[in-house]
C-alpha cells in the first residue's frame, strides 16, 4: 500500500463579508492507493470544502496537501500540470457536472485530447470508458439530457477516469441519486478502485453506504477530524463521543436495539467556534478542561486516531457510552 495523498494541518477559510470563516480548521489525513476513505460528518462541517481544497479548487491558508510527492497548487487559468491530472474529482450534482450542450463522448474525450491524443482515438477510448462504467458504446453521440441521474453520474466518473487518476475525490457522488442508482454507482466506484488501484476519498453523509464501501472512515466535526479508523473500529467501538452519537443516529429497521440519540443543541456557528474542544458544548461527557484545551489527534494502540481527552495515546480505546 502506497501513500498517495497526505494532508498536514490543512485549514481553509472563506471570506464572508469581511469576516473570516474557517470551514476547515487544521486537518491531518492520509490516503493510500487502493483504499476508500469515507469522510463523514454533518452538513456544514467542512467535508466538501476539504474535498475542494484537496484537488486545488480552493487553496488552504495553512498546511499543505501532497499528492504523489508533489504539493498541490491552486487551479489557475493555465493548463493544470500533468502530474495533478491524476488527481480527479466527481461532483455531487449529476446535472451541473455535465455540459448540457455537448455530446458526452466529447466531454469524456476532452481529458484525453488535452493530454495530446488525437480526437478520433480519444473518442474510441471514450467508448471503452463508457463500457467500463456500464453504459453502451453508442452513448458517445448522445447529450446529457438523454440520461438519468445515475447514468449521468457514471458518465462523470468515466470522464474522471479518462485522466487515468491515481486518486479521486468523490464529493457526495450518490447523494442526489435515487436508491437503486445509489447502489449501482457505489458498486461501480468500489470496483474501479479495485481495478485501477486508485485511492478514493468518499465524502458522504450517508453513513450506511460509507460503512459498506469504505476501508477507513474519517469523522469530521466543525472543520476538524475527530476520529479516523477502520470501518470496524468506527462502527463497533467508536472512541469519540461525537462518533458514538453519529453512529447511534443511524435508524435501524428493528427499532429496538438502537434509538437515535439526539445531541443537545445545534452545530455551533463556524464563524465563532467554541473554545477548547469544538464538540464540548454538546458533549454529554465533557469535562472542565474540555472548554479550554483543544485535544490533539492521538494514535491509540489499535491504530486509529482520535482527538478526545477520554482517550490516551498508545492505550486501548476506552468504550464511550452516552447518557
Amino acid at each position: 500500500m502506497k501513500e498517495i495523498l497526505n494532508l498536514k494541518n490543512v485549514a481553509v477559510e472563506y471570506d464572508r463579508h469581511g469576516r473570516k470563516v474557517r470551514a476547515v480548521a487544521g486537518v491531518d489525513l492520509t490516503l493510500n492507493s487502493g483504499e476508500i476513505l469515507g469522510l463523514v460528518g454533518e452538513s456544514g462541517c467542512g467535508k466538501s470544502t476539504l474535498g475542494k481544497a484537496i484537488v486545488g479548487i480552493l487553496s488552504p491558508i495553512t498546511g499543505e496537501i501532497v499528492f504523489d510527492g508533489q504539493k498541490v497548487k491552486k487551479l489557475t487559468r493555465g493548463k493544470r500540470p500533468e502530474h495533478f491530472r491524476n488527481l480527479q474529482m466527481v461532483f455531487q450534482d449529476p446535472y451541473g457536472s455535465l455540459n448540457p450542450r455537448r455530446k458526452i463522448g466529447m466531454q469524456i474525450a476532452d481529458g484525453l485530447i488535452v493530454a495530446g491524443m488525437s480526437k478520433k482515438l480519444a473518442l474510441l477510448k471514450a467508448e471503452d470508458l463508457l463500457e467500463k462504467v456500464g453504459l453502451p458504446r453508442n452513448a458517445v453521440g448522445r447529450f446529457p439530457h438523454q440520461f438519468s441521474g445515475g447514468q449521468r453520474q457514471r458518465i462523470s466518473i468515466a470522464r474522471a477516469l479518462a485522466a487515468s487518476p491515481t486518486a479521486i475525490i468523490a464529493d457526495e457522488p450518490i447523494s442526489a441519486l435515487d436508491t437503486s442508482s445509489q447502489a449501482q454507482v457505489a458498486n461501480l466506484l468500489v470496483n474501479l478502485v479495485d481495478e485501477f488501484d486508485m485511492g478514493m476519498v468518499f465524502i458522504s453523509h450517508d453513513l450506511s453506504i460509507v460503512r459498506r464501501i469504505s476501508d477507513r472512515v474519517a469523522v469530521m466535526y466543525l472543520g476538524k477530524i475527530v476520529e479516523v479508523g477502520t470501518v470496524d473500529q468506527i462502527w463497533n467501538n467508536p472512541s469519540h463521543p461525537y462518533t458514538r452519537a453519529l453512529i447511534s443516529a443511524i435508524p435501524h429497521a428493528d427499532g429496538t436495539s438502537f434509538m437515535p440519540k439526539d445531541l443537545p443543541g445545534d452545530v455551533p456557528n463556524p464563524m465563532s467556534p467554541p473554545s477548547g474542544c469544538r464538540f464540548h458544548p454538546r458533549c454529554p461527557l465533557a469535562k472542565a478542561e474540555c472548554a479550554s484545551n483543544e485535544p490533539e489527534l492521538r494514535k491509540l494502540a489499535d491504530g486509529r486516531d482520535v482527538s478526545c481527552v477520554l482517550q490516551t495515546a498508545g492505550s486501548q480505546p476506552v468504550t464511550i457510552t452516552l447518557n
Binding site: 487551479l75 480527479q88 457536472s97 470522464r159
Partner: peptide, 17 residues
Amino acid sequence: QNDYVTASALLGSSALR
C-alpha cells in the same frame, strides 16, 4: 459556476480552451 467548467479545468483544459 457550473461543475463541468471546474471538471474541465481539473482535466487540464486551459481557461481559453
